[in-house]
Computed example of a mutant assay.
Amino acid sequence: MSRLHVYPRLPAPVAEQLLTVHTGRDLLELRTLSATADPRTTWYPTAPYRVPEDDLRALQQTVRAIATEAHWPAPLSKTSGTAFDRLLAPALYRQMTIVPADAASEEVWSFLSLVLLPDVALWRWPNPLRRPGYERIIGRPRNVFRRLWARIHSLGEDVGAQLYEDEAVAILERPTLGAHPRVARAIAHAHLTTAGEAGTARTDILRITARRLRRLAVVVSLESLDDAQLADLMRRYTKEAIDQLQSERTTSTYRPVPTQVQARSGAR
């Protein structure tokens, strides 16, 4: 088994300063400014294994190779951005070998997106409004790299790589569902196998399923159910969500003639 490492941490004030400086810069210039170390970083104090600089350099090369396949530095469309994410997520997770507790640190992901790989981070998620705390670059849960790592960690490679961005958000950004990997994987698996065959929008189905499950989680401890119970529950809730969405769409297309019009028509 690979040894798990901790990563450099970029303090929040420094991260916001770097984001301000990097925003709007040419991507080729950002590549020349990237580095594997910064004198302002800190480390988790008692962790025995710090990630070697060679490993950081290898991670940098891996991410850039995938970005090159996605035609970096050409602007990304929504479709090509999603395709890039799907390629990057499993590769990033496998190569980082990060201590999961260290991955919960905002400062770790700020280091990745603002020191190690600003050329890729700001290519994937530019900051046109020049927001100082832009959540896609600062290391918050929606950070360009953090969200992909978390998706694979919680859902696994096979399932996590198949979800659309909005679908992953619907599961992972709701603590009652995403905080328990076994529950999150059961939701995603049922969604992909059941909703994937439906003739309605997948993302809308998952939103409805998530709302229903959050209400259920108030009275039922989902994580206490065994695997078979979870699988059965998720399949049932997904099918009910499909039925609800289809019913709503049928109702919205039916527009009865107003009573006043009917009355005028009958008077002729």
Rank of each mutant, 00 (worst) to 15 (best):
S2G: 06
L4V: 06
L4D: 09
V6I: 14
V6A: 11
Y7Q: 08
Y7P: 04
R9L: 12
Q17G: 09
Q17P: 09
Q17W: 10
L19V: 09
T20R: 15
V21P: 03
G24W: 02
G24A: 06
G24T: 05
L30M: 05
S34Y: 05
T36G: 02
A37E: 06
R40A: 07
T42S: 00
W43T: 07
Y44F: 13
Y44L: 13
P45L: 04
A58F: 05
Q60H: 12
Q60L: 03
Q61N: 03
Q61R: 13
V63S: 03
R64K: 11
I66G: 10
T68N: 07
E69S: 03
E69R: 13
A70M: 03
H71E: 12
W72Y: 02
P73S: 00
P75Q: 00
L76V: 04
S77R: 01
T82A: 15
T82Y: 08
F84R: 07
A89V: 05
P90E: 04
Q95R: 15
Q95A: 15
Q95N: 13
T97W: 08
T97H: 15
V99S: 14
A101L: 11
D102E: 13
A104T: 14
S105A: 15
E106M: 13
E107A: 15
S110K: 10
F111S: 09
L112D: 01
L112W: 10
S113I: 05
L114M: 04
V115I: 12
V115H: 03
D119G: 06
L122E: 02
R124P: 07
W125R: 14
W125T: 11
Y134V: 04
Y134Q: 09
I137G: 01
I137Y: 07
I137E: 00
R140H: 11
V144F: 09
V144S: 11
R147W: 00
R147C: 03
L148R: 12
G156R: 06
V159C: 01
E165G: 06
A170N: 05
A170P: 07
L172K: 02
L177C: 00
G178F: 01
H180C: 07
A184P: 08
A184K: 08
R185E: 11
A188Y: 09
A188Q: 02
A188V: 05
A190P: 04
H191V: 04
L192A: 03
E197M: 10
A198T: 03
T200K: 05
T203V: 08
A210C: 08
R211K: 11
R214G: 13
L216V: 11
E223K: 12
E223V: 14
L225K: 05
L225F: 02
A228I: 10
L230C: 09
A231D: 14
M234P: 06
M234E: 01
R235V: 12
T238A: 07
A241G: 09
Q244M: 13
Q244D: 14
L245C: 03
S247Q: 15
E248A: 10
R249F: 09
R249E: 13
R249M: 10
R249N: 13
T251P: 04
T251N: 14
R255V: 15
V257L: 13
V257A: 00
V257Y: 08
T259G: 04
Q262L: 14
Q262H: 10
Q262K: 15
R264F: 15
